[in-house]
Design a protein around this nucleic acid. Sequence first.
DNA 1: TTGTATGCGTTATCAC
DNA 2: GTGATAACGCATACAA
Lengths: 361, 361
Amino acid sequence: MQSIADIFLFLLETYMRKKRTTIYDIAEKLNLTASCVSRALNNSNYVSEKTRALVLKTAAELNYKRNILATNLRNGHSKTIGIVVPRINQNFFSNIIAGIEEATYEKDYNLVICQSNEEHEKEVKCINTLINQQVDCIVISISADGHDYQHLKNVIDHGIQLIQFDRVVDELETLKVINDNEQASLEAVSHMIEQGYGRIALLEGPQHLSIFKQRKAGYLAALKKYNLPVIHELIVKNAWTKELGAKATRKLLSLSNPPDAVFASTSDFSALGVLEVATDIGFKVPEQLGICGYSNEAFTEITSPSITTIDQYSFFMGKTIANLYFEEMNIKEIAIQPKTISIKPNLIIRSSTSKKSTETK
Amino acid sequence: MQSIADIFLFLLETYMRKKRTTIYDIAEKLNLTASCVSRALNNSNYVSEKTRALVLKTAAELNYKRNILATNLRNGHSKTIGIVVPRINQNFFSNIIAGIEEATYEKDYNLVICQSNEEHEKEVKCINTLINQQVDCIVISISADGHDYQHLKNVIDHGIQLIQFDRVVDELETLKVINDNEQASLEAVSHMIEQGYGRIALLEGPQHLSIFKQRKAGYLAALKKYNLPVIHELIVKNAWTKELGAKATRKLLSLSNPPDAVFASTSDFSALGVLEVATDIGFKVPEQLGICGYSNEAFTEITSPSITTIDQYSFFMGKTIANLYFEEMNIKEIAIQPKTISIKPNLIIRSSTSKKSTETK
DNA sequence: TTGTATGCGTTATCAC
DNA sequence: GTGATAACGCATACAA
C-alpha cells in the first residue's frame, strides 16, 4: 500500500512538478552548505572567489532561479510597489505608471497595478490586497466616490510607505506629488480672457477632491484678476465625464445668454463632450465658443479643431514619485516627515481657444 | 554593551517597525495554538464554530492581515498572474488587462503587469522577473523586435503556465487566444471593394509575426475573391506606427496611379497617419481615399471623418484568457494539451470607407 | 572563509 | 476539535 503511494508520488515529482532547483541542490552538488551558496549568490565578501565562481557556474547549469517569495519573507519586504489608479487606460495614469516603471526598472522593483474603477469599495479591496502582498510602498490617486479614508490610514499603520498623487486627501499626512492645479487653471482661464472670451463657463468636478477645488479656485482667481463677474449659472457641478460634459453643454448653450467659452476643468473627456455638442448644435469653435480641457489626452490633438488643454507632465510625475520613494526609503527617522512636491503643469494652446489668430488649424 | 544594543533595538521595534500581527498573536490572546487559528482563518471544518467566531473577531480587532508571502511560500504558488504587453496605454492592451482583471478579481488572484516597450531585451527581463516572482501563469503578447524565444521556453521549463494572445509564436505549443485575423481582414477588404474601391493599398506589419501574416492573407484573399489584381507597389512593408503610416501614405499618394483606398492592417495609429497626410495633401476621405484601420482605438470614433476599423473584443478576450487559465489549472494531466481559442473580430463600418452613402458624418 | 543554527509566517500532517 | 511539529527556501548572527 505504502509502496504504491510512493511510486505514484515519484511519478508525480518526475513528470509533473518540475521541481525548482534550490540553493540546497547547488550546495549538495558542490559539497558546500546552503549558507555558503547563499553568500556566494548575494555578493557577500565572506566567500572565496573560487567558491563564488563555482557556485555561479553551477547555478547557471542547474537553471537556478532564486525564490523571491522566500527571500522576501525572510527580509520582511517585497521590493514591490503597489499602484492604485482609477483606470489604467487613461493617458494620464498610464503615463504615470510608465514613469514609475522607468525609474524602478533598474532597481529591480516590481509593480503591482490595480484599478479602482472609481469605486471606493474596489479601492479598499485593492489596498487590502496590496497590504497582504507586503508591498513596500503604495502609490495611489484616490477614486472619486469615497469619503472615508480608513483604508489609507490602515496602510500607514502597517508601516507601508504611502504616496498620494494628483487626487490627494489633504488631511492625511503622507508624501504627496501633485500638480499646481490652481496656477494652471489661472493661466488657462487668463489665456481665454485675453483671447477675448468674456462669459466663461466652468465644468467643475466633485469638490471633495482637492484637485477640483483648486482648479475652481484658479478659475475664480482669473475672473477676479480681470475684474470679470462670477456668473453662477455658468458654473456646472459634477460635469466630469464626456456624457456629463455634453449634457451640461446642451443646457449652457440653450441659456438666453449663453457662455462664449467653456473651461472643462475636469478632463479632456468632458471637453470632448462640449466640442461634440457645440458642433452638433452649430456653434463654431473657437469663433463662437472657446474650449479648454485638462490633461492633454492624445485625442485632443486630433479633434477638429484641436483642443487647448493642460499637460500635467504625467510621465515626469511618475518618475518623481518613484524617486521620492527611493529617497525617503533611506531615511531612518523615527517618523517620516510629510512632504509635498508640486509640479507646474503646462498650458498647451491649440485651435479651440485661438479666437484672435485667424488660422484655425 | 549588550544592554545598550538591546535598548536600541527595543526602541527600533517600538517606534519604527510597527510589527504586523500574526496568527501567533491571535493564538496567544485566545490561549490557542497557531495551527488552530490558522484553521479557523481558512474555513477548515475541523474547528468549532465558537472558536472560529472568536478568532475572526480577535483578528479584526488586532487588524490582522494574512501574510501572503508566507502562505504562498508554504503552498508553492503565488496566486499571481503575470502579464507582459508591449504597452499598457494602448486601448487593446488595457482592455485585455481589464478583462483579465474582471475575471480574476473574485478569485483573489493578483496581476503583475510589465511593459516590454516592444523591446526584446526588456521582454526577456520582464519574463525573468516574473519567473522569480513565482507567478502561476504568464500571459504574453510578444514584442515585435524579437526572433528568439528561449525566454518563453524557459517559462515552460519552470512549470509556469504560458498563455499567448494576439501576437503569438506559432511554433511554441502553448495555450493561445487569438483573433481570426484573416477572416476579419477578408471582410474589411471585401467591404471596401463593395463600396467601390478598386486600388486598395495594404500597410503591412512585420511578417515574422503571424497576426500580420494572417491579415495580409485576408487582404489577398479578398482581392482574389473579387478577381482584383495584386499590385505590388501598393503593398507597403513595416508601416505600423502613425509616423510610418504617414510616410507610406505620402509615397503612395504621389504615385502616378495612386490607390483609392488604404487598409492599414497594422493598427488604427497607422490609419490615423494615413488620414492626416491625406487631409493635408487634399485627398478627400472617403470620396477619393477610403481608410480602414485595425483595433478600434477610442480615437477612431472622433476623427473626422470617423475611421472604419476592426474591433477585436479585447475585453472579452481578456476574460477568455483568464478563464482558460482557470480551466486548465484544474486539469492534472501529465502534459498540458496546447489549445487555441480563436475569437471572431467585428468590422465596424464608419465614415472613412462609406463612399456609397452620402452621409459623411 | 566556511559551517551551524535559527527564524521569517503559514499550513499540512500527525497525534491526542 | 485541538495541539505539536515539520516544512516551504532563504539569509544572517554566531561559532569554528
